[in-house]
Amino acid sequence: MHYKPMGFILGYDVGGTKISAVIGDETGKIHDTLRKRTLKEYGKEGLSAELIAMGEELLRKNHINSIDKVGIIFAGPVDSKNGIIVASPNIIGLKNFNIKKPLEDHFNVPVYLDNDAAAAAISERIFGSGKNVDNFIYITLSTGIGAGIFINGRLYKGSHGMAGEVGHMAIMPNGSVCGCGRRGCWETIASGKGIARRTMENITALRDSTELSKLRSSEIDAKAVFRAMDKGDMFAQLMVEETIYYIAFGIVNLINILDPELIIIGGGLSFEGEKLFKPLRMAIKEEIKSLKRNVRIVKALENGADIGSIAITMYYD
C-alpha cells in the first residue's frame, strides 16, 4: 500500500518487555506497527541502532520517503525538555542518555521524548476522554503504577520534570519494600505485580485455592487471579476485592489533593472492564467519605499506547 510521503510521524514505545515502532499522522491514525522484544543488554548504542533499524524497516515497507517528526515514549523517568533518559529500570546502561541526538542525526527531523504515563495523558487530552477537560489524571495500572496529570489545561511536570510518580505514594507504611527503597508504595500493593506478590504471600490460602493452586508460581499474575475469580475461586475473589480497595484508596488521595474532574484508567488491569470499574467506582464513592464531589472514572483509549508517541510530537511541537 502506498501513502503520500508527507505529514507522517514515526513513533516509538520503549517498554520493559517490548519495543513498538509505529507510523502515524496527526489525525491519530496508525498506518503500520512493528514490535520487537526488549533486550536488557542493549546499552546506548544498541538501543539507538535498534530504533533506527525498526524505523527504516517501517518506512521501506510503507514506501514512505520522509517523515515530519519522531516521538519516543520511555518506561522510566526522563528529562523530556532535553531528550534524556534519566534512569532505566529495564535496560542496562541508559542512565543520563540523550536518546534524541542519534535519532535526530539519522532522520534529520525534530525528536520528542516523554515517559509512558505522561504520553498516555497527552493522548487522552488530544484524542480521548480528556479532550476539553482541563483538570484530569491519567493513571496506568500495569506492572507498576504511574500517572500523567493535567492541571488547568496543561500537563503538570513539576520542578524536575518527574511529576506523576504516584505509584510511590506510600499507603501502607510497614508494607513491602518497593524498588524505590520505600515501604508500602501504592504500586507494591495495587499494581499487577502487587496482586501477584500478595497472592503468593498467602501460602495457606493459595494451597486451598480451587484454581490458583493448579498453577506454577511463574504463572500467577493479575490476569490469572481475575480468571480464577471468573471461575468462582473464593481466594481469587478476595484478592481482587482487596486490590480494588487499595486502588480506590490511592485514587481518593489523588482526588483530595488535586480535585480533578476526571480520572482515566489505562494499563493492563483496565482490560478487565466492568469487573474492575464497577466495584472501583463504588469503592471510591465509599472511601471519599464526606468530601464527596463529582469525579468521573473512565477507561482509557484502547490504542493509547500506540498513539502516545504520535500525540507527544503534537503537544510539544
Results as ranks from 00 to 15, higher is better:
237 Q>E: 09
214 K>P: 06
218 S>Y: 07
305 A>H: 11
35 R>E: 04
316 Y>H: 12
173 P>I: 14
287 E>Y: 03
5 P>E: 07
298 V>R: 10
270 S>Q: 11
30 I>W: 15
272 E>M: 08
107 F>V: 03
241 E>M: 01
264 I>W: 12
190 A>M: 00
203 I>D: 13
40 K>L: 05
113 L>M: 04
85 I>F: 02
92 I>N: 11
282 M>C: 10
244 I>F: 05
120 A>P: 08
106 H>R: 03
238 L>F: 13
217 S>H: 09
277 F>K: 11
206 L>M: 07
58 L>E: 01
246 Y>C: 01
244 I>D: 04
231 K>F: 03
94 L>I: 04
84 I>N: 03
249 F>I: 03
237 Q>P: 08
281 R>C: 12
214 K>T: 15
314 M>Y: 08
186 W>S: 00
189 I>L: 02
86 V>M: 08
249 F>E: 09
23 I>H: 13
131 K>Q: 05
311 A>L: 08
98 N>L: 10
250 G>Q: 03
143 T>P: 00
251 I>M: 01
130 G>M: 09
237 Q>N: 08
209 S>V: 03
13 D>V: 03
279 P>L: 09
18 K>R: 14
75 A>W: 01
263 I>Q: 05
34 L>V: 04
7 G>R: 04
124 E>H: 13
60 R>V: 07
227 R>E: 06
39 L>Q: 13
38 T>H: 00
247 I>T: 01
82 N>M: 11
